[in-house]
């Protein structure tokens, strides 16, 4: 890694690294300046060591202001995330953070349903910690081997409902069924979701039908991460019906569901 005064500004130390599943890793980064500012729903943009041109945007899974650390949980998807998974405690990482527009949080007493799909689950953890016992976390995974963070959600005091596509852990099927049950049991004041697009679309449709505020965290292939290069475009619709592109890195990653052109 280059060591000049500019690169130093973006260089942070890895405090710990833990493998959660075959593909998912949890990294804690020492970054007091970033942790002091970071909000739930924001992301970090990491440049892997090696011949990589683009950074890898990863959502924030934990903010510890006392320790001055952030936690991220990511999945190895390609060569860049594979390189990041090789980092160990004491290594340094080049990070631009915190970035993006996070969740807009109502009072902690609000009943909130938090939906996570696969590697979209991690950004739900800071929300579960915020809402505590008022949160219901419904998370969906391909199968038992992909399940992550259930103990963390429980430790936050949230009610947890686990679903898998093949029924190998928790309930068999999609997250939308328990979502509808939880709404029927007691209408929440907020739904937050992050995960695959079909899951977000279905969640947004239910929220709209039930007239429940819904915030979704979106994903798109990203460039600069700060809103300048305009590559991570997301189709949105203004209240007056005007369609336009907004950008996941700056206007998002968290959008109000009704802003998104599904």
């Amino acid at each position: 890694m280059k060591q000049d005064k500019y690169t130093e500004k973006l260089t942070y130390s890895v405090r710990s690294m833990e493998q959660l599943t075959a593909a998912a890793w949890s990294m804690v980064i020492e970054c007091p300046d970033v942790a002091a500012k970071a909000q739930p729903g924001q992301f970090v943009n990491l440049l892997p060591d090696g011949n990589f041109t683009l950074r890898r945007p990863i959502s924030i899974c934990g903010i510890d202001r006392e320790q001055g650390t952030l936690r991220i949980v990511f999945e190895v998807r390609g060569k860049g995330t594979a390189a990041l998974s090789q980092l160990r405690a004491g290594d340094t990482v080049n990070m631009l953070a915190p970035l993006g527009h996070g969740f807009t949080l109502p009072a902690k007493e609000t009943r909130a349903i938090l939906i996570g799909g696969g590697i979209g689950t991690p950004p739900m953890l800071p929300l579960a910690q915020y809402f505590g016992a008022n949160a219901v976390v419904i998370s969906g995974f391909r199968n038992q081997d992909a399940v992550i963070l259930q103990a963390d959600f429980a430790a936050a005091g949230a009610k947890t409902i686990l679903c898998t596509d093949d029924g190998s852990a928790g309930r068999f099927g999609l997250v939308t069924l328990p979502l509808e049950e939880e709404i029927a049991a007691q209408k929440p004041g907020l739904i937050c979701a992050c995960g695959p697009l079909p899951m977000l679309r279905a969640t947004a449709a239910i929220a709209k039908a039930e007239e429940i505020p819904c915030q979704v965290s979106l994903e798109e292939r990203m460039g600069c991460g700060i809103g300048a290069c305009l590559v991570c475009a997301c189709r949105t619709v203004d209240p007056d019906g005007t369609e336009q592109y907004r950008h996941v890195c700056k206007n998002g990653p968290v959008f109000n569901a009704e802003e998104v052109q599904w």
């Binding site: 011949n51 041109t53 683009l54 290069c229 305009l230 991570c232 369609e243 336009q244 592109y245």
Partner: peptide
């Protein structure tokens, strides 16, 4: 308004864009 996403791809020692 620009092009439909995805608008970026990484390549060896470079990138593609279609903003």
């Amino acid at each position: 308004t620009g092009n439909l996403p995805p608008r970026v791809a990484e390549t060896p020692m470079g990138m593609l864009n279609s903003v």
